[in-house]
Design a protein around this nucleic acid. Sequence first.
DNA 1: CTGAAAGCGCTTACAG
DNA 2: CTGAAAGCGCTTACAG
Lengths: 333, 333
Amino acid sequence: MRVTIADVARTAGVSKSTVSRVLNAKGEVDAGTAERVREVIARLGYVPSSRAVGLARGSSRTVGMLAPSLAWPWMAEVLQGAVDAVEAAGYGLLLFTCNRGRESMALFAEQVSARAFDGLLVVEPEDGIGAVVPLRRAGLPVVLVDDRARHLSFPSVTTTNGLGGELAARHLLALDRRAPLVITGPPRFGCVRERLEGFVRAFEAHGPGHDPRRTAEGDFTERSGEEAVEKALADGLDIDAVFAHNDLSAAGALRALRAAGRRVPEDVAVIGFDDIPFAAFTDPPLTTVRQPLREVGEAAANLLLALVGGGPPPGSPVVLPTELVVRDSAPHP
Amino acid sequence: MRVTIADVARTAGVSKSTVSRVLNAKGEVDAGTAERVREVIARLGYVPSSRAVGLARGSSRTVGMLAPSLAWPWMAEVLQGAVDAVEAAGYGLLLFTCNRGRESMALFAEQVSARAFDGLLVVEPEDGIGAVVPLRRAGLPVVLVDDRARHLSFPSVTTTNGLGGELAARHLLALDRRAPLVITGPPRFGCVRERLEGFVRAFEAHGPGHDPRRTAEGDFTERSGEEAVEKALADGLDIDAVFAHNDLSAAGALRALRAAGRRVPEDVAVIGFDDIPFAAFTDPPLTTVRQPLREVGEAAANLLLALVGGGPPPGSPVVLPTELVVRDSAPHP
DNA sequence: CTGAAAGCGCTTACAG
DNA sequence: CTGAAAGCGCTTACAG
């Protein structure tokens, strides 16, 4: 029923080898023969079976992507970038999620060992990269969208998180804010540590320094941003600025400030991180440190494809630039 | 290098057939032999090659999903639901996007005909389902997350869009709002037509009826919601309520109303549609018609898996309920 | 330039 | 209960 390479060969009056040659533009084929074969292929609507090709060739033209829950708004952007790059290369993207915990990982492991894909893209797994270390050791090309594994020399793509923290700090200093509240994410994330370090560094170099009591640990949720502000105010901390480690917690901070009757930006300037689409729609619109998320996805995918293609692993992480996007929550000086 | 079924057979002192039998729990195998084979499989860490199994068996335990740009906030939710269901069934999900237009579709078509997957999930393609009709005719199980193809008897999953429109209307009427502005999405979407019809129906049955001039066509973007309100106000239309066909355009409406000095909900009550996570964070938080997006993804995937498994196509679309989520932009009466 | 044959790693009748 | 063999649809040396 489905047309195979044998059908094409028979119809064109050549061998399967020859059909395969014109298909893959490999080896010398008489121009006339090639033309004839191509014509038959078109007429019969023949398309090679990816399974058979994969089996014979030992590769599947598919890459895997392991992501935490897709509920994080920035994930969609990274994923879109990756899909675009993968598609452009004629590959398929097999998507896996850690969403269901251990069970997810077990299923994922199965697919891995079943050789369902040729390379793997891993985005910030919540529980560390322990699960992917052996895969890489087993020879599977792996690229991390993250920076925590730098010391393990995992190929990775990340952004200038430290610089981002610095940009936020300098902007607040330019606005003459000296009493910031920093709402971080979970400190196990390398990006969190870098953002904080960059911020503190700038506040020490160009400002009054940073009092550790002005750092509140959040968990990237809107609620945690809200709580951090509520607690700071309840503790009697005077604050004229907030630097949140992501836009969601910045939105929470905005809400808590509003509820407390503090005006933004007059009383308290607020800066977020990520620049997810939603950042432009908060009230007031959020000044934030933009991460080029789609580009991150694209870069990671392209790096992976290069590795799959046999390219050399990059010596150092690919680092994409962050930039400050100024909106009303912390306007220009 | 990689361990194959032949290695297992040799080590266990049986034939490949027998290994295959214990692997697939097919046919009678002596309990002792089976035990021995299982032990060898575990010791050697053998995992069947998905490609080889697929080729021999004629199926790949993979389903495809074709989605428009992942940038729409609700897509992530649907996708997450689908991934969860697919993973739970031990299948893989191959993700495709229409994001790059014709080129995307060409690549997609290629993967389809290459039999890279056993079934296809299609989410609201911008340019209609023309591309997938032939696939289905060719025998590929297809499930639509949409309702426009109902007359083509495509298996599909959708929500009670008409009821959603009605819920919005009744809530506004209960708040004694008689002068609504309805901001629709592109009318080519079936869901848009249903939402509008449901709204109008309720306004005619229980209220003053609906003046067509009170309907503005939007395109689901924040900007289009903003413009619709600006234009209505510029035209001197008196409005005491807005019903937007999605949360993004509702957010735009909120912004335009604020800019015009109208208080929400005192002067104008606002209701959105979808209940994307961001709806809870607007100012004021948005009252909206909730669609169970994750459940939609799950239901669609499960339906598809059933079809792939040889189940009968459902006679009618699977319809999931919408419900009104009341927040401050249109509070309880 | 081209074909016959072996092989990729499985499954599945068919015999026994 | 078990094995030998053919077959899934390709690719790739190896001959010619």
